[in-house]
Structures are given as structure tokens and as C-alpha cells.
């Protein structure tokens, strides 16, 4: 109700060129950058501070018990999911609800696959080896960062599921509004994937 009253909810502002939602999501992403930025800084701080040898030395290669193959697979999955996400938006832009929805479903499936691999094959494997976040600072930051990232993914899946299901009602009322929302979701999704693209090398490769 009040959404219709408020200016620039759907149409872009003539000066900024953005509708409110897009502006809002970008600001939100800016704060997310700071959140993950702080965690990346923590990673750097701890790694630089770690001694060369001894029990608190930074693990490398095999010592990390991380599988670069699984990590690489997950990276591929997330890149693909971003592509499907943007395709969904393009389809909605081209007024194609059915196709767009299909792409959204594909995105959600890929995201769930990512989380499944993360939990089933990576976390569980570590727990079987007796590795917990408390094992060392490396695993502490590994579990914290990937865990927080996985929560973001799950949050994204919930939002996408909403737009596949009940949220799609909006399509019939206001197509542009719906497409805008998909765009915002897409921006968030891209951000989350981008975080992974930074996480993957620093945790698995370096």
C-alpha cells in the first residue's frame, strides 16, 4: 500500500538512475563488503602473525586437509549459478515468466548442490578426521568464513524460493516491480558468489 505511494519504488530516480530497492541493496552490499572485509583482514592479520614453525604455525598444502577438487567444483557451481541467475533476470526483462522461473529453479538447485557438497563432503569429512573449529586458528577462520558464507547462500536460496513460489504473484500485478526485485536478488547473489571467488583461493590454494 505505502509502496505505491512512495516515489521511485519501481521507476528509477531521474538523477541517481536507481530505483529505491537497487540503491538499498547496493548499500546493503557495501556493508557486507565491510563485514567480509573485516573477516578477510582477520585472516591476513592471523596469517601474518602466525609463527614459521611450532603448533600454531599456519598449515599449508596437505596440512589443511582441504580438497581443492571439491573447492574447485563448488567454485564452478557458483559461477554457473550466477549465470543462471542473470539469465533469469534477462528472461523476466523479456517478459518470459516460464523461462525465467526455470532459470531461477536452476539457480536454487545449484545453490543447494553447493551447500550439500560443503556440508556433506567437506564439513563432515573434517569432523570425521576430528577437525573442529577449535583445532587451530586456520580451521577457526576456515569454518567461520565458509560457515558465514554458507549462511548467506542459504539466505539467498530462501529468497529465490520465495520468488519462485509465493513472490511470483507480484509478476501478475506489476511486472517491472517483480523484475526489479529479481535484479536485487541477482545483485546479492553475485556478491555472495564473488565472496566465494575470493574465499576459494585464500583458503584452498594459498
Amino acid at each position: 500500500m505505502s509502496a505505491e505511494v512512495l516515489p521511485y519504488t519501481v521507476k528509477p530516480h531521474p538523477v541517481t538512475g536507481l530505483y529505491n530497492g537497487k540503491f538499498g541493496i547496493w548499500l546493503f552490499l557495501a556493508s557486507e563488503v565491510m563485514l567480509f572485509g573485516a573477516l578477510f583482514s582477520t585472516y591476513i592479520f592471523l596469517r601474518i602473525g602466525a609463527p614459521e614453525t611450532g603448533p600454531t604455525a599456519w598449515p599449508t598444502g596437505e596440512q589443511t586437509h582441504l580438497s581443492w577438487k571439491l573447492g574447485g567444483l563448488n567454485t564452478l557451481i557458483l559461477i554457473l549459478s550466477s549465470v543462471t541467475m542473470v539469465m533469469a533476470w534477462v528472461q523476466f526483462k523479456m517478459d518470459n515468466l516460464a523461462k525465467g522461473r526455470m532459470y531461477l529453479i536452476a539457480t536454487a538447485v545449484l545453490a543447494i548442490a553447493f551447500v550439500a557438497i560443503k556440508l556433506k563432503f567437506e564439513y563432515m569429512h573434517k569432523f570425521h578426521l576430528g577437525i573442529k573449529p577449535s583445532t587451530s586458528v586456520f580451521f577457526a577462520i576456515y569454518f567461520t568464513m565458509t560457515g558465514l558464507h554458507a549462511l548467506h547462500i542459504i539466505g539467498g536460496v530462501v529468497v529465490i524460493a520465495y520468488f519462485i513460489g509465493p513472490g511470483a504473484k507480484l509478476w501478475h500485478e506489476n511486472r517491472e516491480y517483480y523484475t526489479n526485485r529479481i535484479e536485487c536478488t541477482g545483485l546479492y547473489w553475485h556478491f555472495v558468489d564473488l565472496v566465494w571467488i575470493f574465499l576459494f583461493p585464500i583458503l584452498y590454494l594459498l
Binding site: 537497487k22 559461477i79 550466477s82 542473470v86 533476470w89 535484479e183 541477482g186 545483485l187 553475485h190 556478491f191 558468489d193 564473488l194 571467488i197
Partner: peptide
Amino acid sequence: SLKAFHIIFVIFS
């Protein structure tokens, strides 16, 4: 827009 961000994403990917 998502278009621009997608391009950035593709570059990073």
C-alpha cells in the same frame, strides 16, 4: 545494474 555487476563478476571469475 545487474548487467554491470555480472560483467565484473565474469571478469573476476
